[in-house]
Design a protein around this nucleic acid. Sequence first.
DNA 1: CCCATTGTCTCTTAGTCTGATACTTTAGTC
DNA 2: GACTAAAGTATCAGACTAAGAGACAATGGG
Lengths: 129, 129
Amino acid sequence: MLSISLVSQVPLHDQLVSGLRGLIAAGKLARGDELPPVRQLAADLGINLNTVARAYRELTDAGLLASVRGRGTVVISSVERSFGPKVEEKRRVEAAIAAALADAKIAGLSRETIESMLERQMERLWKTP
Amino acid sequence: MLSISLVSQVPLHDQLVSGLRGLIAAGKLARGDELPPVRQLAADLGINLNTVARAYRELTDAGLLASVRGRGTVVISSVERSFGPKVEEKRRVEAAIAAALADAKIAGLSRETIESMLERQMERLWKTP
DNA sequence: CCCATTGTCTCTTAGTCTGATACTTTAGTC
DNA sequence: GACTAAAGTATCAGACTAAGAGACAATGGG
């Protein structure tokens, strides 16, 4: 369900965070679902438990997960759940998008390339949950 | 002609490499064109000369530039030559965009909201070159 | 020859990633 | 209630990297 690349340039915990975010966004993980223990997921992926723990903590801080010592970690957010008028969230998201787009432009990608890229990603995100 | 972001997550020298690659790929920099001295470009961008030197060196190693002590740095590649390595850049950028979009969906933003957000950002990026 | 210009090298500082290990909390079981 | 297993958390260490400060080396013009 989750896959990471040990040779990638992006840090392992970032890959985990992105991957888990993607699973939640796609509806593969719904509110109340339990996540594997850090040791198990770490063993499955062949990495250290701290790395998994860090990813869990970041998502916990972001309000997507909830961890309790001795019990485990569960999803507390879901796609359907709207955060309502959280302007702060919106601005953070907008900043992330702006950074990604600026990065794309700096990399020399044409506007058309970026737009088709966006379109494909949007389709992927909203296809058959 | 070149712009970088000091607050971006991607390293400065990587931004420079991407930017220069983009300029060469777009034909803004042709074979034989001289690049600014490392000190000048560094001063213009407000960064250290070593960072610029590193970018130059990486592109020199990649066969796009040629540097000579005391003389300067020139472009020795043409557009088609610089098209190859762009694929890696594209994939990296695509991953960043995918993460940002997943983030946006998680935040509870509707598809329409995200799309208008994207449109606005794209307009802003390409309004005055 | 002398000097300004230019790229290159060395070193330092600070920060981050990842892992090893130990600690704390929860929940069951006898 | 004490004990044990399981789970998240905290602390520390080692390695790597980015970025800057400053010195060094080569080129070309007067």
